[in-house]
Simulated scan of single mutants.
Amino acid sequence: MKTSELKISPGIIWISSVVLGILSSVPQLAQHSFNMTEAVVNAILTSAFAIIMWYVNLFVFSWYRKRSPRKQTSSRRLFITFGIGIIIMFGLAWLQQLILTHINFGPVMLMIEVRGLLINLICYTILHLFQQNFENRRITIQLEQMKNDNLAAQYELLKQQVNPHFLFNSLNTLKSMVENGEKEAVGFIIKLSKFYRHTLETRKLDLITVKEEMEIVQAFLYLQKARFGEGFVFEQRLETASFTSLIPPFTLQLLIENCLKHNIVSEEQPLHIRVYERDGRLILENPIQLKSGDHHSLGVGLENIRLRYRHLTDKQVEITDDSCTFKIKLPIIYEDPHY
């Protein structure tokens, strides 16, 4: 999500600055020798200083936020704005001395500098409170968005896991095996029940180990072998360490199902599917041999996987399609971000 910048209405900046300028001249009304010129000059310079410091603080806040977006407080930021304020107020005090030459520069400058520090502190405090409120609202919106994305991904995942088309094909295959008296029918039923048991056990989990995911894949491949025979070849080249890493459940199974769904699978033209690790990513690849009329897939399964990874990690799912080979690269996760 793109981070928006903290903004303050120009009306608030100018009106508050003018009010501060007027208030700074109020004490002069109590003096016996009230001088209108002094009061006006003092109000104008104070208002100008307040306006400048509003924008200086906004710039410093924005600059620090881009450098350290997670760091909300900084004493260095406060000292920088104070230092800039002192220099600006000194210049304005010198300008006041040029306009009102009869005023003793020393005591007046000290009073103006103290006033400048107070105005700067007011601007800084208000902006800090605005920023905290801004950050809290932004985080709340992000959390709600992530929650909605996760719920949508879980719902889509459940719909794809309990796929009526997949169940229909599996039952048809089982029917044919039973009618032909094949001994593998019992094993097929066991694998099918095991696959749906995994569905029920893991559908509420964000992550499982790659070892557990491969058990789901093996049960799924067994069911597909009964349907496609030698029409596809699955090759797994994962290192031992990869099996302890984490992955959203049914990720590889969904990707393999996509491969079988969109590509030609036949004994004359077997589909080769490989899973391996490289550069800190799990990679699933297959040659592109699309079925006729399947060039405009909606990619619902891939979008589902993207959503779940976006919920779990900052790393992106990468997809490579060079018209010959299709590769999807999944970030390897070693720690559950929710614990």
Rank of each mutant, 00 (worst) to 15 (best):
L118E: 02
F90W: 10
T209M: 01
I319V: 15
Q72I: 14
T46I: 12
Y222Q: 05
Y334W: 13
Q316S: 11
K159N: 12
S245N: 14
L95C: 08
M214C: 01
L110P: 00
L151H: 10
I52K: 08
Y124G: 05
S9Y: 09
L92N: 08
L92T: 08
N163D: 09
L45I: 09
Y276P: 09
T209K: 02
G85H: 10
K183M: 00
M53Q: 10
E184V: 01
H102N: 11
G280A: 12
W63L: 15
D206P: 00
V178L: 10
S17Y: 04
S68R: 15
F232E: 06
L200E: 04
G187D: 05
A43R: 07
E5Y: 03
I51D: 04
F61C: 06
N133G: 15
K175F: 01
I122W: 09
Q160T: 01
R237I: 03
E201H: 02
G181E: 06
I22Y: 05
A39W: 10
I80Y: 06
G83K: 04
L312T: 08
L284Q: 09
V275R: 06
H262R: 06
L117S: 11
N136K: 14
K329H: 14
R67W: 04
I190L: 08
E182S: 03
Q269L: 13
I88W: 06
S170Y: 03
L118D: 02
S47M: 12
H296C: 11
G181W: 06
N148G: 06
L255V: 09
L118T: 05
Q131T: 01
T81W: 04
Q236W: 01
L252K: 09
K225V: 07
L298Y: 09
N133I: 00
E212G: 01
K225H: 14
I190S: 07
L151V: 10
D206S: 04
T202F: 07
M214W: 02
I319D: 08
L100M: 11
K71V: 13
L45V: 06
N304T: 15
I273A: 06
D294E: 15
